[in-house]
Each structure stands twice: as structure tokens, then as C-alpha cells.
């Protein structure tokens, strides 16, 4: 094995892409493509969307409410008279913003708390675990609603709305990061290399951040993707219940779905299907990536190509350590000729 792999192949998703085969690879690639398109659409929303998210009329006059799909409005218009396609496209921006803010905040707070609590233990650990469990036990959507009301009084501008949604999601997610990182920390704490650092006399912050934290972050990409999809669902749930973002200040899929309830019974399908589809697709993409990362991280779940049972090329000594690509194992192997003759 080479001393170092190139940086590119050590990046989380890229590395797994190379490692995967078969169905798992298909899942991962599908997920990555969906997320990639999601990001692209969010980035290029002003170019892609035919109208603004709060636009009700153009130079030809008002759009009209509940117009079926046409060349003017590819996906029709909503009961409020907005263009469905534009709102779906602009909605990616809101979703992305909420995911980034929510996950970044919960990641930061949850990881710090988890490492400190897991390593130090004692009463601090007990209190934090109890608090985390209490938050965990609470229905997350209910908690999000409470937080949304506290922060913004229920209604808000785009940034207020995004922040309210993000913070409420953060509060719900911190216990998840906290628990995962804490569990890893408790495991790593007893590993010999942490004890080695203690014997050396390293200070506690140094042990925490140099030795423990860096080794505890293995499961984060997985948690990150799964939480991101959950964040979208919570945001949509908030919007659906009317605690989201005002339609004039930002496009939000959950809110649009809420407004489409009445349409469904009257056969107006386009107002609900497309925002719903957008939510499903993004959540599916995130979940696919998350689940495949999970499977690939576990060697027992990871699918492999079958070995072909042909002898290796002569003169190429193969290390025979199942499951591990160790460098030539012993000094004996360097010094001995290849074992050839067999004495019976």
C-alpha cells in the first residue's frame, strides 16, 4: 500500500464511491445525483425559475388561481395564484438554507457537548444525558412548534422563518449528535492510545481534541445525511401546520402543501403533487446516501466483488491477512525465499 492516498479519494463520499459495488453503488450514485441536482437547482434558482416565488402577475396581468399546467405555467398555479414551478424551484433555496443552518448548529453544539461529557464523565455527564433523553422523548414536531413560537411569535420574514425553523430543528437534533459522539468517546476513552497520551502527560484539552475527537467523527457523515433529510421533513411539517415562512417572504414546500389540501378533493392535483414530489425526492436522495454510507462503513454489510480463484502472478508476494492489507508482515518474510518445496 502506498504511504498516502491522494487527497481526493480520502474525501468521505468519493472514497465510498470507489469502494462500493453492485446495488450499494447504485444506491449511493442515485443519492449523490439527486443531492447534486438539488444543490444545483438551489444555486441557480434565479436563472431556472420562470417567475419570482411571490409573483402574482406579469405584464399580461394576474396569473389567476388554480390554473392547470399550460405553456405559460408549466406546472400550473396555486390557489393563491402563484406559479407552482417557480415555488418548487425557489423552495430548494429555503430547504437548503434550513438544512445548512440547522445541521451546522446542531453538529457544532452536539459534538462539543458529546466529547466533553463522554470524556469527563461524572455529574456533568449524567445531567447532560438526562437532559438529552428528555429532549429525545419529546415529540420533535411539537418541540419545533414551541421553539418556533418562542423565537418568532409564529410568523416571520424569510430569515426569521428560516432561523426559527433551523433553531427548532437544532434543539431536536442536538441530542442525536450528543449521544452518538458521547458513545464513541466513551469507547475511545478506554483505547490504549488515549491511555498512552495520558501516560505521556498530555493535557485534557489536547487529549480531547487531538486524540479523541478526531477518532470519534467516523459516524458523522452518516448522521449528517440522515438528519438533513429529517430537517426537511420537520421544516415541511412546520410549514404544513402554518408555523413556517410567509408565502411572500419565501417559498416553502410544506406551506404550499398545506394550501393544496382543499384542491385535492376538487381534482386539482398539480398544486400538491409537485411540492410533495420535491420533498420526497430530496429526502430520498439524502437517505440513500446516508444508508449507503452506513452500509459501506461496516465491513460486514459491505458487498464485495467475488474473488477469482486464479493464482496471483508469480514473484508477487501477497500478504495473507484476511480483511487487512498489511504491509509485509514479518522480518522473516523478507529474508526467506518463497516457500516452494513440500516435505511429506
Amino acid at each position: 500500500m502506498a504511504a498516502r492516498r491522494p487527497v481526493l479519494s480520502r474525501l468521505p463520499v468519493v472514497h465510498q464511491l470507489r469502494q462500493s459495488v453492485g446495488l450499494q453503488r447504485g444506491m449511493l450514485v442515485t443519492g449523490v445525483v439527486i443531492i447534486g441536482m438539488f444543490l444545483l437547482v438551489a444555486l441557480l434558482a434565479p436563472l431556472l425559475a420562470p417567475y419570482g416565488f411571490a409573483q402574482l402577475r406579469d405584464e399580461d396581468g394576474a396569473f389567476g388561481a388554480q390554473q392547470p399546467p399550460s405553456s405559460e405555467h408549466l406546472l400550473g398555479t396555486t390557489v393563491g395564484g402563484y406559479d407552482v414551478l417557480s415555488r418548487v424551484i425557489w423552495g430548494t433555496r429555503t430547504a437548503l438554507l434550513v438544512i445548512v443552518v440547522a445541521v451546522a448548529m446542531s453538529l457544532f453544539v452536539g459534538v462539543i457537548l458529546g466529547v466533553v461529557s463522554g470524556y469527563l464523565g461524572g455529574w456533568l455527564d449524567r445531567i447532560l444525558v438526562v437532559v438529552a433523553d428528555a429532549v429525545y422523548a419529546f415529540p420533535s414536531l411539537l418541540l419545533a412548534i414551541v421553539v418556533a413560537i418562542v423565537i418568532s411569535g409564529g410568523q416571520s420574514s424569510v430569515f426569521g422563518g428560516v432561523l426559527a425553523a433551523a433553531i427548532s430543528i437544532t434543539v431536536v437534533f442536538i441530542p442525536q449528535y450528543f449521544r452518538v459522539i458521547r458513545a464513541e468517546t466513551v469507547r475511545i476513552k478506554s483505547e490504549a492510545f488515549v491511555e498512552a497520551a495520558r501516560v505521556i502527560g498530555a493535557s485534557t484539552p489536547r487529549i480531547l481534541f487531538k486524540h479523541v475527537l478526531r477518532n470519534a467523527t467516523r459516524t458523522l457523515p452518516l448522521l449528517f445525511t440522515l438528519n438533513a433529510s429529517e430537517a426537511i421533513l420537520t421544516l415541511a411539517g412546520l410549514g404544513f401546520l402554518g408555523f413556517g415562512i410567509e408565502p411572500t417572504s419565501g417559498a416553502e414546500w410544506g406551506f404550499d402543501l398545506n394550501r393544496a389540501i382543499g384542491d385535492v378533493t376538487s381534482g386539482i392535483w398539480w398544486t400538491s403533487v409537485f411540492p410533495g414530489l420535491a420533498i420526497v425526492l430530496v429526502v430520498l436522495g439524502m437517505t440513500l446516501v446516508g444508508e449507503s454510507l452506513n452500509d459501506l462503513a461496516d465491513p460486514r454489510l459491505r458487498a464485495r466483488r467475488r474473488a477469482d480463484n486464479t493464482p496471483p502472478p508469480a514473484g508477487d508476494p501477497v500478504s495473507v491477512v484476511p480483511g487487512g492489507a498489511n504491509s509485509p508482515t514479518t522480518s522473516l518474510q523478507d529474508e526467506l525465499p518463497n516457500p516452494g518445496e513440500v516435505r511429506a
Binding site: 493464482p311 496471483p312 501477497v318
Partner: peptide, 16 residues
Amino acid sequence: LNVTFATDGGDVRAVD
């Protein structure tokens, strides 16, 4: 008897 394992680092012939 020959046994070969498929690993991340390529095929490994464990028994030859």
C-alpha cells in the same frame, strides 16, 4: 486446496 479472499486491497490468496 486453494482459498482466495476478495478484500478492499484486491484478492488475497490465503491457502495455496
